[in-house]
């Protein structure tokens, strides 16, 4: 194991981890805080990728700008889905079974619709920075990894500020713990959850834009991310954004080392192995509540 291989694998892993954090943060909010097991999230991420692709291919808009433009649409989509979820499942009482099947169906519908609309070819975007690399003596920083990573960190920081500094943000954090207390503070739990779920889906628009900058995308790519995002989410401790970031970095580094030293075909099993191990030995996660 040579030093520069090691350092580069480490750096590549951390860049990858930064991006994973963006994919996971939506699940962290939905699953960790709202207790909604939204396994369709990766499907929405892929949808975000395709929107970035369309805007890029048709109007030449930078994928990240496209992601930002798609934010309000995704927010509304999320709010609408929550409304359906609330009326069909949450209001009727605790019935995890049907809620899970609902999101599984959504995931499937998104994927098949994208296949019908775009086919199964890989799609990619064009931007000036995608095939450039910054070389710092030993370390190579490909911009297609660095740019998504930096924007992802920015998004996480903004979300953390929102969740800890504003009234609505704090209400979102509180909704998981005590809905009655929230009512006494004159905040409607259903409205707060709708906002939170909207935000959680909105992050998928950005994550999708990052994804298509990093790699070409086809409709079924999302499935690989289901295990990853839940591994990260559980690893980091549910509902904690700093935990999400740490979990994502950890997974990114472990995957990058596996890919470098054992071959990329083993990389997918890493996250799942990690998930199973975490569930078996430390279900509360690293920074669990």
């Amino acid at each position: 194991m040579t030093a520069d291989l090691f350092v580069n694998a480490l750096v590549a892993g951390m860049l990858l981890g930064g991006f994973y954090a963006a994919v996971t943060v939506g699940i962290s909010i939905a699953f960790g805080i709202l207790d909604i097991v939204n396994i369709a999230h990766p499907g929405f991420v892929i949808l975000g990728s395709y929107i970035a692709y369309m805007m890029n291919a048709r109007f030449g808009i930078d994928p990240i700008v496209a992601g930002i433009l798609a934010l309000p649409v995704f927010y509304l989509l999320g709010a609408a889905i929550y409304q359906i979820y609330y009326h069909s499942f949450e209001k009727r009482g605790p019935e995890a079974l049907r809620g899970l099947a609902f999101f599984f169906g959504l995931l499937f519908i998104t994927e098949v619709t994208l296949i019908l609309a775009f086919g199964v070819d890989y799609r990619y975007v064009q931007a000036a920075y995608i095939d450039r690399t910054v070389n710092l003596r030993l370390v190579h920083l490909p911009l297609r990894m660095l740019v998504p990573c930096l924007f992802s960190l920015l998004m996480l920081a903004l979300l953390q500020l929102y969740l800890t500094r504003t009234f609505t943000g704090r209400a979102i954090m509180a909704v998981a713990q005590d809905q009655l207390a929230l009512r006494l503070m004159a905040a409607d739990p259903v409205r707060i959850k709708r906002i939170a779920f909207g935000i959680s889906i909105a992050t998928a628009a950005m994550a999708g834009a990052f994804l298509i900058i990093i790699q070409p995308v086809e409709p079924s790519v999302g499935r690989e991310y289901i295990g990853r995002v839940f591994a990260i989410c559980v690893l980091g401790g549910l509902g904690s954004l700093p935990g999400t970031l740490i979990g994502a970095m950890l997974l990114g580094v472990v995957e990058s080392f596996t890919a470098t030293f054992y071959g990329p075909s083993w990389a997918p099993a890493v996250s799942f192995g990690l998930l199973l191990a975490t569930l078996a030995f430390r279900p509360a996660g690293l920074l669990g509540r």
Binding site: I39, R223, I226, G227, F230, S271, F272, L275, L276, L279
Partner: peptide, 20 residues
Amino acid sequence: LRGAFFSIATLALAVVLQTL
């Protein structure tokens, strides 16, 4: 663990086995 974790683990299982 809670029910949802079992479901997620089964998703994970599929990918682990496929990789193997």
